[in-house]
Amino acid sequence: MKRIKLTLAYDGTNFCGWQLQPRLRTVQGVLEKAIIRVTGTPVRVHGSGRTDSGVHALGQVAHFDVDESFAAVNWQRALNSLLPDDVTVLNVELVSSEFHSRYSAIRKTYTYTLWLENSFFLPWRRHYVWKCGPLDFSALDQGMQLFLGEHDFSSFQNTGTVIKSTIRTIHDFKRYPGQTEQEMILEVCGSGFLKQMVRNMVGCLVRIGRGKAEPETVRSLLQIKDRTMAPATAPAQGLCMAGVYYGETGCGGTDTGRNQAQNSGIDG
């Protein structure tokens, strides 16, 4: 058997998330159906993470195993000819059987796009941004910095997934301009993320940016370790899995993700 690594981009608007679910349209589901049309036999695809319904990707990584006879297939061309137009294969690699898209990952980067204008809204951006209105950038920056480092993120984890530890490390958290003048992108790189952790961090930061909480709220919530005390979860459509990194010491690749985000229709 040979292991194939895929790098994917998708518009999550019309998907019920990544994970295979009976009778529901998912990214994993349509991808497996496309692969079966090539191999003629069922193939299980493993993703680096489970994006929720409405969440997008510019750098989702997945892998699957096929018989050696299919190793020479031009998988990018084959799959892109079979997949729907809201998901595409960006890159294909033949990798070692020891590689695992999820367990081999060292760091991940997500972006979240905010719409900062109250007086108008561009309708075609509605599936890719959170219309949150003007924010205090200074307060926002202070709050972002308090997330850096290793912490117990219990206050920023939604229920639904059994895990061994809620401790994660945030390596970088920054903001930069979005696709339009009215948008701003938050980019966070970490060792890994809990269920809806990025959306919960963004929800907290927006509350701070609106002046409804102090930046020190971040420190307090990290210490309290109680999700019920934290602000509401940010909407799904603003979130995008920007990149997954393997065997790297830094958050390398985020510049590429940033350029893609600023020039893509699915930057949120």
Score class of each variant (00 low, 15 high):
residue 73 V to S: 06
residue 150 E to R: 13
residue 106 I to A: 14
residue 209 G to E: 02
residue 57 A to Y: 00
residue 90 L to K: 14
residue 143 G to I: 05
residue 175 R to M: 15
residue 243 G to D: 15
residue 147 F to M: 13
residue 242 A to D: 07
residue 223 Q to Y: 02
residue 256 T to D: 11
residue 211 G to V: 08
residue 65 D to M: 01
residue 268 G to Y: 04
residue 10 Y to H: 05
residue 75 W to P: 02
residue 95 V to H: 01
residue 243 G to L: 10
residue 205 L to R: 03
residue 227 R to E: 07
residue 216 E to V: 08
residue 147 F to A: 01
residue 196 Q to D: 11
residue 191 S to E: 11
residue 4 I to C: 05
residue 219 R to S: 14
residue 152 D to H: 07
residue 231 P to A: 09
residue 52 D to Y: 07
residue 88 T to L: 11
residue 62 A to E: 03
residue 264 S to Y: 00
residue 226 D to M: 05
residue 38 V to Q: 14
residue 155 S to D: 00
residue 45 V to P: 03
residue 142 Q to I: 08
residue 41 T to L: 12
residue 123 P to G: 03
residue 238 G to Q: 05
residue 257 G to D: 11
residue 218 V to C: 09
residue 48 S to T: 10
residue 48 S to Y: 07
residue 95 V to K: 00
residue 87 V to F: 02
residue 41 T to E: 13
residue 237 Q to R: 13
residue 192 G to S: 10
residue 116 L to W: 10
residue 101 S to Q: 02
residue 3 R to H: 07
residue 248 E to W: 12
residue 26 T to R: 09
residue 44 R to G: 11
residue 24 L to S: 13
residue 93 E to N: 12
residue 17 G to T: 08
residue 86 D to E: 10
residue 259 N to V: 12
residue 246 Y to A: 04
residue 20 L to P: 03
residue 111 T to L: 10
residue 111 T to Y: 12
residue 164 K to R: 15
